[in-house]
Amino acid sequence: MKLKKNIAISESGFIFNPEIGTSFTTNSLGVAILKQLKEKTSLDKIKDSIVKNYDIDPITCEKDLDDFLRIVNQYNLLEEQS
């Protein structure tokens, strides 16, 4: 899973997709996840870093991460899977 390379991520949580001109807002954790996706970090590593830095168990983390990624996909921010 990879974020489209031209997606602009601001530290404030403002996300801009320049290809279609849409924008979204997210929180600091969302920014951290999107940045890692942009760097092609694996989902397992992203999940591990969240579990390590936040008070959350691995199962809940996986579920929440799945929900977040589904939204990210709906917003057309991910590269199409070949």
């Binding site: 031209n6 320049p18 290809e19 279609i20 001109g21 849409t22």
Partner: peptide
Amino acid sequence: PMRKTFLTDKGKAWAGISIDD
């Protein structure tokens, strides 16, 4: 190129944004 981000009731662009496609 641009995408209309706000339309009037006549479908005219009241706001828009330049895009990269």
